[in-house]
Design a binder for these strands. Structure first.
Length: 152
DNA sequence: GCCAACGTTGGC
DNA sequence: GCCAACGTTGGC
């Protein structure tokens, strides 16, 4: 069982959007970074839990918890010329990008703000808070996971 | 909108 | 393989 953090811009896809999907389940598409792709493709397991992080918005922070319900498979949005995440270098025969399916476990009543995360000593070394970090899919240690839950 | 940090691209 | 230029991310 692994712990993760997934970033999304709420303008594009928010935790409220996920809550409204059938089965509160949706594919996590659009990741176009190799390190993040490798996590999605190789390391995420069905049953793993992830924080849903809202980025690039007025109130960045962790909005809730999702469960991985389908392990890595080709991100088909890369095959669609009309999709914003289209990548002609990725084909059904040789897919370059991968996604997983996530199901909403619960949305927090209050988003745990980035500021709260930054001022929590046990989270000092968390990847998310590292200088210049841009990774949109990242692992968390069990200690980080529970420290964040304590902030709720 | 600004800008620092980072990843990718492409010429050499 | 180097590295400058460029595009993107993401907080503020």
């Amino acid at each position: 069982m692994n712990y993760w953090l997934l970033k999304s811009e709420p303008d594009a896809f928010s935790i409220t959007d996920l809550a409204q999907r059938p089965g509160r389940t949706e594919h996590w598409d659009g990741v176009r970074n190799y390190q993040a792709r490798n996590y999605l493709r190789d390391s995420m397991r069905r049953g793993d839990l992830a924080f849903f992080y809202h980025s690039s918005c007025a109130a960045p922070g962790i909005a809730g918890i999702v469960e991985i319900v389908r392990e890595g498979y080709p991100d088909f949005t890369a095959f669609d010329p009309f999709d914003t995440h289209y990548d002609p270098a990725s084909t059904p025969d040789k897919p370059r990008w991968y996604m997983v399916d996530v199901r909403l476990r619960r949305a927090f009543k209050h988003v745990i703000s980035l500021q709260e995360l930054k001022s929590c000593p046990p989270l000092e070394d968390m990847k998310l808070l590292a200088r210049g970090n841009r990774l949109s899919v990242m692992p968390l240690t069990p200690a980080e996971w529970s420290a964040i839950l304590d902030l709720e």
